[in-house]
């Protein structure tokens, strides 16, 4: 039997909004440790890695490891039926081919449940090598979303260049070029409003705007985002989900033609 009760169904809804652009369906792997998901987009350019820790749930019970394949458009329909302050309880029997979502309003004045069919997905997991990143940049997630949105108007790719002075995002296209430079901030009082750069070696890599824009759908989950860069290695864009876990995106770089 699997049962997980999350205080805020809105948090799960945000997670769903952050992955459904990239994935049509995905397997949620449930174990004692929590709920995990790892899946590549259809083009095998990006990978989504979600980890929701069991102790982030109000109630969590997983008697046997369970993989639940779900269509994310269907799952979105289910979560569209939840109120913003509802709790959600996810339930499945050990060998079930369905999963149940129960939404409860704060004062129990409304309780609804939706049963959804599960899918058998043949998803392979990828081994992600440990990497010593050359540059790790922390910045406000809203600022990152803004930069990606602004630069995407001009070109299809963004070059992220990092030195110890700061980080530069650049693009070029038919109408011209655009550059945004962020300096490291000195005010560490408010960490989630700061730009913090941990640089071992300067690095400059090119990435697709389209994918970066999809990743920024996770902005409502966290005030801060972490970008980890290293030559010839996929970019990691990481959003911490407060008290619950994290959502990481990996993106293969573009290389010179």
């Amino acid at each position: 039997m699997f049962e997980a009760r999350l205080a805020s169904s809105a948090t799960f809804k945000k997670v769903l909004d952050a992955i459904k652009d990239l994935l049509n369906e995905a397997s949620f792997d449930c174990s004692d440790a929590g709920i995990q998901l790892q899946a590549m987009d259809n083009s095998h350019v990006s990978l989504v890695s979600l980890n929701l820790k069991s102790d982030g749930f109000e109630k969590y019970r997983c008697d046997r490891n369970l993989t639940m394949g779900m269509n994310l458009a269907s799952l979105s329909k289910v979560f569209r039926c939840s109120g913003s302050d509802d709790t959600v309880t996810i339930k499945a029997q050990d060998d079930a081919d369905t999963v149940t979502f129960m939404f409860e309003a704060k004062k129990q004045e409304k309780i609804s449940d939706y049963e959804m069919k599960l899918m058998n997905l043949d998803q392979e997991h990828l081994g992600i090598p440990e990497t010593e990143f050359s540059c790790i940049i922390k910045l406000p997630s809203g600022e990152f979303a803004r930069i990606v949105r602004d630069l995407s108007q001009f070109g299809e790719s963004i070059v992220i260049s990092c030195t110890k002075e700061g980080v530069k995002f650049s693009t070029q296209g038919d109408i011209g070029t655009g550059n945004v430079k962020l300096a490291q901030t000195n005010n560490f009082d408010k960490e989630d409003q700061s730009v913090i750069i941990d640089m071992q070696e300067p690095v400059s890599l090119t990435f697709s705007c389209e994918y970066l824009n999809s990743f920024t759908k996770a902005t409502p989950l966290s005030n801060q985002v972490t970008l980890s860069l290293c030559d010839n290695v996929p970019l990691v864009v990481e959003y911490q989900i407060p008290d619950l876990g994290h959502l990481k995106y990996y993106l293969a770089p573009k290389i010179e033609e």
Binding site: H44, L126, I128, A252
Partner: peptide
């Protein structure tokens, strides 16, 4: 502006 690489060049199936 550059050729897109595949993630499969970097990560191998487990």
């Amino acid at each position: 502006s550059g050729n897109q690489t595949s993630l499969m060049n970097f990560f191998k199936p487990k």
